[in-house]
């Protein structure tokens, strides 16, 4: 179980190698990497061009919240290990922002926990994006679709 919040890039291959090495009882690892898109919103046809973005975060609370999200995932699924890496600072389209990984004896737990980690991270970890577009800078607004994605993991919801 590990959380890293950092300005510098990470190497998904090296992280996967480190995450999987020596784990003979693990049947599967699910690893997700999020990238910076070059347009705002959902639709590339209507979204403003994004030249770059800057991610601000709340040092201390960010790590605390990510650790709580990892702990919650490990309560819900029989996981061997989890890893969350999130970058901050200025990022350009195509750059990696985030990596989450979960390993388990069986694939279902790894897939579900990986998705849970991302869904909760997007609605609970204190990061904020400002997009740098040709028209100027704009703070990204929270999406209802992200709230909906996170709420399907609420306890008691089928």
């Amino acid at each position: 179980m590990a959380v890293r919040v950092q300005r510098e890039d990470f190497d998904p291959g090296a992280e996967l190698e480190r995450f999987s090495s020596g784990k003979t009882s693990v049947g599967g690892i699910c690893l997700f990497v999020g990238l910076v898109r070059d347009y705002a919103g959902h639709d590339p046809a209507s979204g403003a061009a994004v030249n770059a973005m800057t991610l601000e975060h709340y040092p201390g609370m960010t790590e605390r919240q990510l650790e709580a999200i990892e702990a919650e995932a490990r309560q819900r699924w029989p996981l061997d290990d989890t890893l969350v890496i999130h970058r901050f600072g200025r990022l350009e389209p195509g750059e990696r922002i985030v990596l989450v990984a979960a390993s388990s004896a069986h694939r279902d737990a790894a897939f579900e926990a990986c998705r849970f980690l991302m869904d909760w991270l997007k609605t609970k970890a204190p990061f904020w994006k400002v997009e740098h577009t040709p028209e100027g800078d704009a703070w990204v607004e929270a999406k209802q679709s992200d709230d909906a994605a996170a709420s399907r993991w609420d306890k008691g919801t089928p």
């Binding site: 709340y58 999130h86 990061f127 703070w139 607004e141 992200d146």
Partner: peptide
């Protein structure tokens, strides 16, 4: 103190209180 609260959450001298928009990481 780095945990989410709301308008009814108690505050006292020495607390670290932060205000921010809904989060947009990931």
């Amino acid at each position: 103190n780095q945990d989410y609260g709301n308008l009814d959450t108690p505050v006292k001298a020495g607390d670290e209180v932060a205000f921010f928009p809904p989060v947009t990481g990931g």
